[in-house]
């Protein structure tokens, strides 16, 4: 399958202040610190990480909120940051659904007004009202919603409107930034199934960002785990859950609260969660996970491991898997 979005050694550092009295040294947060991967046409690529892992920074850089410090993101064969201002034709292709439906819809605009903006910008020759109606229908909302304000909608309905807005430009690539983590579990399923149905119908490619591994198991075709700005493991979803290699992945899996014995059996037994994610201002030397790692070795605190393809399509960045 063809690659649709390619990250090449992407780094995004933020300067958050200065320290030192005589020589002022900038304090940098290395939110994303050199990631490379490619999302393939038509797949759902799961990007999993805890807070501070940099997964949201990846999303916001992709949609053009930030410019990369170094490295590139290519959409098909175009560099997303070739121009100073991203051209409309590229904006149309890459859209996002945010985590917090409360903040992502303007409380002072009706659903119709919210949906009209991308329609007017990207499909100017079409009938806005007609298209608005079709978008609502697409996300299974009735036309009565057209003139409602967001505060009268439930969380799930708000997220449906946010999905309709993202699809209004007829994109080919959509970033889903924790689209259901603010919702109750009884409506999560409805939103997820809507998202998956729309993917089939419109041949969309998803970058699905979440901290919920159980959800990933059910929707993603491939999964990457991020920790402190770097990817530590990347694999096909089935393979990933069958044989997780990286100690951090194992710790994540072991920490999931599950509902049944069958699921319990899938969790790594030996690993127990310990320690907390260090501040991204002071990233530990060597492998950034070594302080929490149950299997750390001397080399781990000194040398940062490199990504190694252990099996076809399954890569790990850990000294337990040295390059051959």
């Amino acid at each position: 399958m063809a690659d649709i979005l390619t990250f090449n050694d992407l780094k995004k550092h933020f300067v958050i202040g200065q320290e030192g009295f005589l020589r002022r040294e900038p304090i940098t947060v290395k939110a994303v610190d050199g990631i490379s991967f490619a999302v393939q046409e038509g797949e759902t690529f799961g990007l999993v990480g805890e807070s501070g892992s940099g997964k949201s920074t990846v999303a916001y850089t992709t949609i053009g909120m930030y410019r990369p410090t170094t490295g590139t993101i290519r959409f098909r064969d175009k560099d997303l940051f070739a121009d100073k201002k991203r051209p409309l034709a590229l904006r149309k292709q890459i859209q996002i659904v945010f985590q917090d439906p409360g903040s992502s819809l303007n409380p002072r605009r009706t659903v119709a007004q919210i949906l009209a903006l991308p329609l007017r910008l990207h499909r100017p020759q079409e009938n806005v009202l007609q298209q608005t109606a079709q978008l609502l229908d697409m996300v299974e909302l009735t036309l009565e919603y057209m003139h409602k304000y967001p505060q009268t909608l439930s969380g799930g309905e708000k997220q449906m409107v946010a999905i309709a807005r993202a699809l209004a430009t007829e994109p080919s690539f959509v970033i889903l930034d924790e689209p259901t983590s603010a919702l109750d579990v009884s409506i999560q399923g409805k939103i997820i199934n809507l998202i998956m149905r729309l993917q089939r119908e419109f041949n969309l490619t998803y970058l699905f960002i979440t901290h919920d591994l159980s959800l990933m198991r059910n929707v993603a075709s491939r999964v990457a785990i991020m920790y402190l700005g770097k990817i530590c493991e990347i694999a096909d979803a089935v393979e990933f859950f069958r044989t997780p290699y990286h100690p951090y992945t194992q710790m994540l899996l072991a920490s999931i609260p599950v509902l049944s014995e069958e699921e319990e059996a899938l969790k790594p037994r030996k690993t127990v969660s310990r320690g907390e994610i260090p501040s991204p201002v002071n990233i530990p030397s060597g492998c950034s996970f070594h302080l929490r790692c149950p299997r750390h070795m001397d080399i781990c605190s000194v040398v940062d491991p490199v990504m190694v393809e252990v099996e076809a399509g399954h890569s790990v960045r850990c000294h337990l898997f040295p390059p051959s």
Binding site: R86, R91, Q95, F98, L121, R165
Partner: peptide, 10 residues
């Protein structure tokens, strides 16, 4: 996010 979203749309 609604401002960011408008920016993203161009």
């Amino acid at each position: 996010y609604f401002v960011v979203s408008a920016e993203v749309s161009g």
